[in-house]
Nucleic acid binder design. Structure first.
Lengths: 216, 216
DNA sequence: TAGATTGTTAATCGATTAACAATC
DNA sequence: TAGATTGTTAATCGATTAACAATC
């Protein structure tokens, strides 16, 4: 359970809220005004009972016999996800992946702003991979976090560098980290780390492929 | 549970096997010959009881009082993950992210090979984003999958294109898909889809940041 | 033998699902 | 009122954790 001011929301529910938000925005873009738990669940890839249960942790937003207002439910979920305030991101490690993340255009409309890019390599420092921000030297990590008011960090460094970068980030006061480095970061319990491992995802698929082959 | 020829492995366990494999390879690179469930669990970011329980679904590989042989446990897990045979990948959608994925160098040593890149845009078709493979037109998806023996697909297209691409991929016989598109793909139950949503991960972090702020 | 560590059992915990009373 | 759909309860299911007998 994740304690908030109001209520406790299970971690599994929190992880699905972005799916619901995305599905709601798709419905909104399609001009749909009112939806049902069945329709929204289908668009989100979950069951309708699960959707209703998940929403129940946030409160009670539907009308029995009618369904949910797309606009107001969107606002509720965006609010729960803390997308009211803007989160200021630093991307650390401007290799292939870091560049791709820097160029991703979807941040702003989702409540995020990339305010800093950092890399250790002199060959990359000073370049402007997304046309805008210049890459700053990793040496200045602490100063950059403080000066630019960074509130969240994306680590896209090679594995061996990630632990020390993460420690410096945490020492600078950042408590939310998204890591693409394939290592288990050892950090204090109050730091929230989400980890994305592309090679690991492929390996999970490979497991299923092997299970399929063995079943034949 | 995921049925294999031998046994049933819980999905949560399968998702952790890549972590164990990575930690084992790190230990191996550091010259460690024998490890314990405590040491390996720490390096993998899980508890030792969970590690032993997970391994027990695959068999019995340790020596009581001694621990695990790093080399042979590595082989066991790599084998369970189906990394013996090479998996032939196609990356579809060569934008920022697709390019970064095409340039990622870690595939080969992990049992994967990128054999095709595809994109819909004439401006991209024919280019060689990673120096090697040329991008082929999305039109030829079915032919490319057949000719190159593609066994797994990575979808890095914009959201709206993903569903139709996925349907064509499945119709061509591919049953394992890694998707970076922020949509819930509607596919037959026997298709395994892993989905990575970077914006969603940031939103989950934002939820925790908001909960932290509310608690103060 | 004494010490260490596995593999497994049993207890706990958390998440999902189904069913339905409440109610628009 | 009749039909529809929510919000919630209770049952089920699956995953995690702790403890310890087995055994090197």
């Amino acid at each position: 359970m994740i304690e908030t001011g109001e209520a406790a929301v299970p971690a599994a529910t929190v992880a699905r809220l972005p799916h619901y938000l995305r599905a709601l925005r798709d419905l909104q873009a399609a001009g749909v005004r009112t939806t049902s738990s069945t329709e929204l669940a289908e668009a989100s890839g979950v069951g309708s009972a699960q959707l209703r249960k998940d929403l129940s942790y946030l409160g009670s937003f539907g009308t029995r016999g009618v369904g949910y207002d797309v606009g107001s439910l969107t606002a509720v979920i965006a609010g729960a996800l803390g997308l009211g305030s803007t989160h200021r991101l630093a991307i650390i490690g401007i290799g292939n992946l870091g560049q791709a993340l820097a160029n991703y255009s979807g941040y702003t409309k989702r409540g995020f702003e990339v305010v800093a890019l950092l890399d250790v390599s002199p060959a990359v420092v000073g370049s402007r991979p997304s046309g805008g921000l210049a890459v700053e030297p990793l040496d200045e990590l602490e100063k950059v976090i403080a000066d630019k008011g960074v509130t969240m960090v994306v680590i896209a460094t090679p594995g061996p560098a990630a632990q020390s970068v993460a420690e410096r980030v945490v020492a600078s006061g950042v408590r939310e980290i998204l890591s693409f480095a394939p290592v288990a970061l050892q950090l204090p319990d109050d730091v929230v780390v989400r980890s994305v491992d592309v090679a690991g995802e492929l390996q999970i698929l490979a497991f299923h492929a092997a299970a399929r082959a063995a079943a034949r």
